[in-house]
Amino acid sequence: MTGLTFQPERTAVEAVGLGARYRRRWALQDCSFRLPAGRVCALVGPNGAGKSTLLSLAAGLRRPAEGSLTVFGGRPGAADVRPRIAYLSQDKPLYPRFTIADTLRMGRELNPGRWDQAVAERTVADGGLSHEARIGDLSGGQRTRVALALAFGKRPELLLLDEPMADLDPLVRHEMTAALMAQAAEHATTVVIASHVLAELEGVCDYLLLIADGRVRLAGEVEDLLAAHSVLVGRHEGPGLPREFATHTVVESRATGRQLTALVRPDGPLPEQWRATEPSLEELLLAHLRSPGAPALLTPSAEPRALRRRLHAQGASRLPEAAA
């Protein structure tokens, strides 16, 4: 029971040089990352960053324009991969004239040999919903619950959720998150939650994928990413950055009077006269979103295995931190 649900050696999702495009506009470009199985991953980024595109690629709803994306080692649309993925799109489309019972029946009919009616029914029953209620008559939160029941009933190994909690009140949001986490705990499901509401993700996710402008900015374990950064506060006057910062990667720095606050990726010992603290998740994300020029950072577990092998073959010991 003390074994973690994640299996670091198994790969749930892996992207190498992934690109996707709507007509002329690139929604994703040159994305490379890896998500180990059993993780609960936050997919974060501003609106229009490419979160939904990435999820629909992983769900097998669209094809990449370039590069590759694999789920459990296969193409997302492949016959042996599709049954293992469940997907909840942002608008949670369901057939409005179906009853809840019809909707669950659809899950059973379209997932032969996989469907778990008991799990789906329990999820619906926990919300106090009648099986005879029509989907069209449900509130946004109730629809989300039915859509989640449909996803849970499939017994997925990878659960992709696009802004799942956006239209839920705090109580239902807590309930649904709890149901989701229980599902993940029981079946070691890999979960990806796309959101731009940070409060929704704190404490829930142990893995992070930050994308902005269609590119990966941060990827890896939340703890490791936080530990790899420091917030430095100290006194500094004059133009430019202090010389003692030269050895470190400065993500963002702000001067207020004589005080300088900087978020850095330390490389070696930090200067003595600066007060260093570990950033909060929010500080880390905001700093990266405000500084599009900062190099991307992938922790070792988030480096694509395929890319890694290639680099090792070339004699490189580590993936360069700059993805671009």
Binding site: L61, A79, P83, P93, L94, M106, L110
Partner: peptide
């Protein structure tokens, strides 16, 4: 139009 095809396509049967 309604996006319900996404529900059908993400079950276990091919589009």
């Amino acid at each position: 139009e309604s996006g319900t095809y996404k529900v059908a396509w993400t079950q276990s049967v091919s589009p």
